[in-house]
Computed example of a mutant assay.
Amino acid sequence: MELLKEYLDYGVIGLLGFMLFVAVAFAVERWLYYRQVAVERFGHLETFHTALTRNLTIISSVGANAPYVGLLGTVLGIMITFYDLGQGGDIETQAIMTGLALALKATAMGLLVAIPSILFYNALMRKVDVLVAEWKRVHES
């Protein structure tokens, strides 16, 4: 239990930081790709759509799962707080509130990772829709 108590914050926040890094890296990669993609180069719409949506699933997955990683950190933090209370026998309001407040930071961090990831995903999907419409205009005229 002491090991979990000592490394919980580092583990959860480290994982969320990695998830944010991955989401931002893929979002930047996709944005740069969309800026230089040549619609005329693709003969089939399915091939074009596949090229456009590569790595978007990862960004979406980060946005969808980051709150759950944060929630897991919060639940484990609350469990540690209750365990400490059960071991000590004393019920100090300050100790309880401090433990719960520290546990809730994991949920906040999860939301701070999820919100930009979902925004990146939605913006990139809008760009995919625009590029597909442009492909249809070029190839159907």
Rank of each mutant, 00 (worst) to 15 (best):
S60P: 00
L72Q: 06
I78L: 12
V69I: 15
L119E: 00
V75T: 10
L71N: 05
V62F: 03
L45C: 01
P67S: 08
F21A: 15
M79W: 05
V24L: 15
G110F: 05
G73A: 07
I91F: 14
V39P: 04
T93H: 05
F21W: 13
Y68C: 03
R30E: 03
I91P: 00
A123N: 08
G70A: 04
G86P: 03
A51K: 09
H49Q: 14
H49V: 07
A101Q: 11
T53K: 11
L3S: 13
L76T: 02
L111N: 02
G11T: 13
R137F: 05
L8D: 02
A23W: 06
L85E: 02
H49R: 13
E46S: 13
G70F: 00
L71Y: 04
G88W: 01
G99P: 04
K136R: 14
L131M: 08
R126T: 13
L100T: 04
F48A: 01
Y33H: 15
S60E: 11
M109N: 01
F48M: 13
N122E: 04
A106Q: 01
T107W: 02
A23S: 15
M19Q: 08
R35M: 12
R41A: 14
F18L: 15
R41S: 15
Q36E: 15
L4V: 14
L8Y: 00
E92P: 01
T74H: 09
T93L: 15
E134N: 12
G77V: 02
G73N: 06
N65H: 09
G63F: 04
T50R: 14
A38Y: 06
A103S: 12
A23N: 10
G17D: 07
K5T: 10
E2G: 10
G11C: 11
E29I: 02
R30T: 10
G14F: 11
T107G: 03
I115Q: 08
V130F: 07
V62D: 01
V69H: 00
A108V: 12
A123Y: 11
A133S: 13
H44T: 07
G63C: 08
N122I: 06
D90F: 10
L111R: 07
G70H: 00
E46Y: 05
V28Q: 07
T81Y: 01
L71C: 07
A66M: 08
T47F: 01
G63D: 02
A114T: 07
V75A: 10
G63I: 06
W31A: 14
H139C: 11
H139P: 07
L102C: 05
A25R: 11
A123M: 10
M1C: 05
T50V: 08
K127Q: 13
A23Q: 11
F42R: 07
M125V: 09
Y34Q: 06
L119C: 08
S141G: 09
W135Y: 12
M19G: 03
L111E: 02
K5N: 14
A101V: 04
G43Y: 04
L111I: 15
G110C: 06
D129P: 04
R30G: 01
G73F: 06
G99F: 04
S60G: 15
L119D: 01
G70Y: 01
W31S: 11
V69D: 00
P116L: 09
L71H: 06
L119M: 15
Q87Y: 03
Y33P: 00
V69Q: 00
S117K: 05
P116F: 02
Q87E: 12
S60V: 06
K105T: 13
A25F: 15
Q36V: 12
S60Q: 14
